[in-house]
């Protein structure tokens, strides 16, 4: 199992607070130091959500520049990571939204209600060759989900955030996160089924 992916390497450390405070006052060097240990995680998050390297890079760059511009409005620098995460998630949404216009049709969670004739996949054991193929199919299925579903799944399955952590990150209630996560997963399953029709 790969280690949990997170772009919050040292949450709330004294050094980060100091850097964030200096960055907020307009110190670009401090801002650079603040971002440096986070860039890899930011990129991984964006790429997992978006799937396209060029777009993911754009999303991260846009989010970082927006964070710089809005940093004076951040009242509590200890919340920099959660705040930056929301900006990045929003940047990914905007990217997917613009890409939606020129490429694939996304599948909204609401369109993916369970069907009575859904095949039962539970008894199928994969062979080694199927694993790669199925992960590819799963990736394509994931790419048909709407942005909110993708972001939730990435928070939970890639970043390893708990329901409570996601709730804190997004500002939603834990019950809402739990429900939306359930719906996102159901949507992914339905989208995966579509890969085999």
């Amino acid at each position: 199992m790969a280690e949990a992916v997170t772009w919050t390497p040292r949450p709330g450390t004294e050094m980060d607070l100091d850097l964030a405070a200096r960055a907020r006052s307009g110190d670009t060097t401090a801002f650079e130091s603040l971002l440096e240990p986070r860039m890899s995680g930011l990129a991984r998050f964006a790429l997992a959500v978006i799937g396209d390297e060029h777009d993911a890079r754009d999303a991260v760059q846009t989010a970082c520049v927006q964070a710089w511009r809005e940093l004076p409005a951040l009242r509590d620098v200890a919340r920099f990571d959660a705040w930056l995460g929301r900006i990045l998630a929003n940047s990914c949404r905007q990217l997917l939204r613009s890409r939606k216009r020129r490429r694939v049709r996304e599948i909204a969670v609401s369109e993916l209600e369970p069907r009575a004739d859904s095949p039962d996949m539970s008894g199928m054991a994969p062979g080694p060759a199927d694993v790669v193929a199925d992960l590819d199919a799963l990736g394509r299925a994931f790419d048909r989900l709407d942005s909110d579903a993708r972001i939730l799944l990435v928070h939970h399955h890639l970043e390893g955030l708990s329901i409570g952590d996601i709730a804190a990150r997004t500002g939603l209630s834990a019950a809402t996160v739990k429900w939306r996560l359930h719906m996102a997963r159901a949507a992914l399953e339905r989208s995966l089924e579509a890969e085999y029709r």
Binding site: M1, A2, V5, M39, S40, A43, R44, F45, A46, L47, A48, G51, E53, A56, R57, V60, Q61, M121, S122, G123, M124, A125, P126, G127, D130, V131, A133, D134, L135, A137, L138, G139, F142, L153, V154, H157, L158, R185, L188, E189, L192, E195, Y196
Partner: peptide, 28 residues
Amino acid sequence: MTMRLRLQDGDIRAMLVARAQRAAFPGL
């Protein structure tokens, strides 16, 4: 393709990790 995985948490994670591992943005 003749067979597929039963969708488990590990599958979702493996797929996302595989996507994320391509994240190398030099000069970003």
